[in-house]
């Protein structure tokens, strides 16, 4: 998606999105949405690193954010408490016709819907760092989600040159579950000294053509995000199969994103 020559609108466009949640996801979604002709309001406790574009508008509180929005992207995976707090503030502030597209990587849409006053406008999305680099996003819904909400969400992504796929409402959805389990398995192998992290990454890229080595993928996603997905899968299924490796917990505690902290 070329950006330089695109006409960039200002606050007068009348169309606006709101983005909030985990910082790394705020950055990715804001950057993508900013290339549409809408204003992107970013709501977060502290200002994240964001591209210097006129249509990106940072806010510490919701007060100056318009009530009528095309959609709110609520992208919290790590803290359920914060997620509920944000969702509740969004519901109170935003007009009923504003869609709420919320990350359902660690919590089901059905579970979230049960906590909302207006669950018909809730659409679930597989929001995990790095996934927006690719051409498809996974969506899901609760039984209360309005069909129009799904349809509009599909159109929003179509305009952003992304395909969508609607999957059943399950913790981890499809690609976050597969990728996080691969990262977790690699950290078990690393912990057991099966090989060095460089060799594990090389082996998976050249032995089975993976797009990223699983350790470097974990770093790019953020080990804290991977841990949140594994904890959620284990909690949801009650299966030992999804237990995070002790090393993954340590890596997550380091909150390293994009840098090597373990060797």
């Amino acid at each position: 998606m070329g950006m330089s020559s695109k006409k960039r609108s200002t606050r007068t466009s009348g169309k606006a999105f709101l983005v909030c949640g985990d910082e790394h996801l705020i950055q990715e979604y804001t950057e993508l949405l900013a290339y549409s002709d809408a204003d992107v309001f970013v709501w977060h406790e502290r200002k994240p690193d964001l591209p210097n574009l006129k249509n990106i508008l940072y806010n510490r509180a919701l007060t100056r954010v318009p009530k009528k929005l095309i959609a709110v992207f609520e992208l919290t995976n790590i803290s359920f408490e914060k997620k509920l707090e944000r969702l509740s503030k969004i519901e109170n502030h935003c007009a009923k016709e504003s869609l709420i597209i919320s990350s359902t990587v660690c919590h089901t849409a059905t579970g979230l819907a049960a906590r909302l006053i207006t669950p018909q406008r809730l659409v679930g999305i597989a929001a995990l760092p790095t996934l927006l680099q690719n051409e498809l996003v996974e969506l899901t819904r609760s039984p209360l989600t309005h069909n129009d909400a799904i349809k509009t969400t599909g159109e929003i992504f179509f305009d952003l040159k992304k395909e969508v796929s609607l999957v059943d409402d399950r913790v981890g959805m499809v690609i976050p579950r597969i990728v996080c389990c691969l990262v977790n398995e690699a950290t078990f192998a690393l912990q057991e000294e099966v090989a060095s992290m460089e060799d594990i990454d090389t082996a998976m890229k050249y032995g089975v053509n993976y797009p990223n080595g699983p350790v470097e993928w974990g770093e790019k996603i953020g080990f804290d995000q991977v841990l949140a997905v594994m904890d959620a899968l284990q909690h949801d299924t009650g299966e030992e199969r999804y237990r995070p490796s002790p090393l993954l917990r340590k890596l997550a505690a380091g909150l390293a994103i994009g840098e090597r902290i373990w060797s």
């Binding site: 796929s165 059943d168 499809v174 690609i175 597969i178 977790n184």
Partner: peptide, 30 residues
């Protein structure tokens, strides 16, 4: 897990064979 989780997703009815493959390629970059 690449195979194991895909089989479980299928078994649990989260998505079809075609849809899981499509997501893994187009959202995962495999």
């Amino acid at each position: 897990p690449f195979y194991g989780e895909a089989l479980r997703l299928l078994g649990e009815g989260v998505a079809s064979v075609e849809e899981i493959d499509r997501i893994v390629k187009k959202s995962g970059g495999f």
